[in-house]
Amino acid sequence: MAARRIVITSGKGGVGKTTTTANVGAALAKRGHRVILIDADIGLRNLDLVLGLEKRIVFDLVEVAEGRCQLRQALIKDKRFESLSILPAAQTRDKDAITESQFAAIVEQAAEAADYVLIDCPAGIEAGFRNAVAGAKEAIVVTTPEVSAIRDADRVVGKLNDKHLPIRLIVNRLRPDMVRSGDMLSVEDVCEILSVELIGIVPDDEEIIDTTNKGEPIVLDDTARLRMIYDKIARRLEGDVVPFTNFDGQSLLGRLFGALKAG
């Protein structure tokens, strides 16, 4: 039973890769899967902070790569879940402190002990990106509905295509009100432009900032508005067909599905 190895990437920085990795990972763990999250953003470690695990770090990714500790010693178990752990990035090293093959080997090893390995990719398309993609078998591209984020996402999609990785898209920080008034690209537009299969739509919501402040995954908060959003993404990853929340007021998703099936 090979684990799924999914890199979460975007090209442009700050569009929500880390937030997505943390919350989708937590949602998968809550659904009973064994999940390992790998922070590939060497030098700009954040995943631990978003999940509230920053105080428990002992070893990091680079130390595992250098053979200074075992993977299992470096993994931090999230006590709130049965089966979620993270491998933190090194904070005081450079992106080139690790090679692609070292990275791939770590992902490989993590995959032996998990059902899902999610890799939080750094921004950009250079060494850090190549590392993060090295051990992945599929990709989630995160974008916001903005021109620069989409252009960068397109660039990344091209690179992932070159590697023959299947790609799914998350449109993050959607503002349905702005879409309605014609001031923001719709999810449909974004999917059409990128021609990538959609796997999630996450609205722009201060809840994200609030839960990130506290270091709590959204799926743990039963009152959270976005809880179902991440749970649905997790289910779609499992292969379920889950209808998309309609933020549009029209039959957006029916049409979207139609378009994707047809195209």
Partner: peptide, 19 residues
């Protein structure tokens, strides 16, 4: 013209050029 249409149009062109 809503700015989203402008965005879409510009993206379409810039991506063709990029490609």
């Amino acid at each position: 013209t809503p700015s989203s249409s402008t965005a879409k149009e510009r993206l379409r062109l810039v991506l063709m050029t990029d490609h």
